[in-house]
C-alpha cells in the first residue's frame, strides 16, 4: 500500500517537471516530436533509477561512515556522468537507430537536473507519503526514483502531443517557439495541481 502511495505521489502529485521544476531544459528541447519524447523518457528513466541506486549506496556505505558527506555533490555528479557514458556505449551496440535519433540529447542527460535532483532529494529529505516523516530505505528510494521518471515520461508524452497539435495551429508571431510552449506547460501544470491532496 505504501509503495502505491509513493508511486501515485511521484507521478501525479509531485510531478518532477510540473511541480518540482526539474528536467525542464530537455523537456522543452526534445518534446516537439512524440517519438523522440518517448525514446528520451526511456533513457532518462533508466539513468534516474540506476543513478539513485548507486548514489544511495555510495552515500550510505562510503560517504557517511567516513564523514565525507561534503563530497556528496562531486561524488554524485561523477557517478551520473559515468553512468550516462555507459548507457551511451550500451545503446550504441543494442539500438544504433535510437542512439542516432537521440543524438546530442543523450550525453546531455548528465546535466539533466532531474537525475541529480532525485539522487540528492532521496538522501537529504525525509518523506511522508501519507504516514510519518521518515528517511527512505533503498527499496522505497528505488520505487520513488522509478515512479518519478515515469512521471517525467508522462509529462513529456502529453506535452509532445500538445506541441504537435500546436505546430499545426496559428500561433501569434511573437509567441512562436518557446513562449507558447511555456504558456502551454503552465496550463498543464495548472491541470496537474488538481492532483494535490490526493495522497492524504
Amino acid at each position: 500500500m505504501e509503495y502505491f502511495l509513493i508511486i501515485i505521489s511521484a507521478i501525479f502529485v509531485n510531478n518532477i517537471v510540473l511541480a518540482q521544476f526539474l528536467g525542464i531544459c530537455p523537456y522543452l528541447g526534445v518534446s516537439n516530436k512524440l517519438s523522440t519524447a518517448t525514446g528520451m523518457s526511456g533513457a532518462v528513466c533508466f539513468v534516474i533509477t540506476l543513478a539513485t541506486l548507486v548514489t544511495f549506496l555510495i552515500n550510505k556505505y562510503l560517504l557517511i561512515p567516513f564523514n565525507l558527506e561534503f563530497l556528496q555533490t562531486i561524488a554524485f555528479i561523477l557517478v551520473i556522468a559515468a553512468l550516462v557514458q555507459m548507457v551511451e556505449i550500451v545503446l550504441k551496440k543494442i539500438s544504433p537507430s535510437l542512439y542516432s535519433a537521440l543524438g546530442i540529447f543523450l550525453p546531455l542527460i548528465t546535466t539533466n537536473c532531474a537525475v541529480l535532483g532525485v539522487a540528492i532529494n532521496v538522501v537529504t529529505k525525509q518523506f511522508t507519503f501519507g504516514q510519518e516523516a521518515h528517511w527512505l530505505n533503498l527499496g522505497e528510494a528505488l520505487v520513488y526514483a522509478f515512479a518519478t521518471s515515469l512521471g517525467y515520461g508522462l509529462a513529456m508524452v502529453i506535452f509532445a502531443g500538445l506541441r504537435e497539435h500546436l505546430s499545426l495551429n496559428d500561433v501569434p508571431k511573437a509567441f512562436k517557439g518557446v513562449p507558447i510552449a511555456l504558456v502551454t506547460v503552465g496550463i498543464l501544470a495548472l491541470a496537474f495541481m488538481g492532483f494535490s491532496g490526493m495522497v492524504k
Binding site: L18, F21, A174, F175, L182, V183, V185, G186, I187, A189
Partner: peptide, 22 residues
Amino acid sequence: LAFVMAPGAFLCLGYLMVLFNK
C-alpha cells in the same frame, strides 16, 4: 496565489520572453 506556484512560473516566463523579444 497561482503565480507563486508552478503554473505561474511557466506563464510569467513565457510572457516575459515575448516582451523581451519585442
